[in-house]
Design a protein around this nucleic acid. Structure first.
Length: 274
DNA sequence: ATGACTCGTACGACGAGA
């Protein structure tokens, strides 16, 4: 029995060591039960001392030097950790492409009966660059891994920085992004195929028809945040059997002031299925 | 404006991010 809904949050922090004070304040203000972080940019041994343990979280993290890196912190237990989707490399994978499946971009654990994953999708760099094709292959592997999890008894929740804006409503100005990554038909097809496994885009699910779900990322440059020049590229994807999505919110305060991440945290409240 | 920030690496720029 849960007296109150679960709070599940995801945040690309752009450097956990650089963001330690902000993460601490955000944890204290929001009290999430499950925290998914991306771009920690550190090895697990470099996680700021006590940041999670002093707040009663168990942590599972992977990292390799100063790039990428993902983490799960849970107050609901943390077991059966998965650290790679490389076993789900798609058929036809071009071995000449960058090996993004070996980078620390997904970690998953069973937290209180829910299989959660912290996901950091590749950027893609330039349309049709090697990294762009590798991004699409990485999405194929993510879809295959997710399909395998959906066949298991624990419901699946994916959260993270997916580096795809699913529709033109998810960017401030489609005309400004012609020729850019994150909005191409191929990336959006990869996104749709993932969603099509039977996952609910939580932010959309609680957004009234005709309104726009809030952005989660704004470029550091040119005052983009204050101009509203953002995108919705961080997502929480919920298998319906996990429970009912009660709310979804973006922590815009976390994008303000000194030394913010370029991403804001996304958090949902979930009433777990009985 | 082929720009604009920021992090990590390593102590001066530079790759990468989106």
């Amino acid at each position: 029995m849960n007296a109150s809904p679960l709070r599940i949050a995801t945040w690309n922090v752009n450097g956990l060591r650089a963001r330690a004070e902000r993460v601490a304040a955000w944890l204290d203000a929001n009290a999430p039960d499950i925290v998914l972080l991306q771009e920690t940019k550190c090895d697990p041994a470099q996680i700021p001392e006590g940041l999670f343990s002093s707040r009663s979280y168990e942590v599972a993290a992977i990292g390799a030097g100063g790039r990428n890196g993902v983490l799960i912190a849970s107050r609901l237990g943390l077991r059966d950790v998965h650290e790679s989707i490389a076993d789900y490399t798609p058929k036809g994978h071009d071995p000449e492409l960058p090996d993004l499946l070996s980078e620390p971009r997904l970690i998953s654990a069973n937290c209180g009966g829910i299989r959660v994953a912290s996901v950091y999708a590749p950027n893609g760099r330039e349309v049709d660059a090697p990294h762009f094709h590798a991004k699409l292959h990485w999405y194929d592997a993510l879809r295959a891994w997710s399909a395998a999890r959906i066949s298991e008894s624990a419901p699946l929740i994916l959260g993270g920085d997916f580096n795809v804006a699913p529709t033109d409503a998810d960017v401030w100005d489609p005309a400004a992004l012609v020729g850019a990554t994150h909005v191409t038909p191929r990336e959006r097809e990869a996104w749709s195929a993932l969603i099509g496994l039977g996952l609910t885009d939580a932010a959309l699910a609680v957004t009234p028809v005709g309104e726009r779900a809030p952005f989660t990322w704004w470029d550091y440059r040119g005052g983009a945040f204050h101009r509203g020049w953002g995108m919705r590229i961080d997502h929480l994807l919920v298998e319906p059997r996990a429970g009912a999505i009660l709310s979804s919110s973006v922590d815009r305060e976390g994008r303000k002031g000194a030394s913010p991440s370029d991403h804001a945290a996304l958090m949902i409240e979930l009433e777990p299925a009985a």
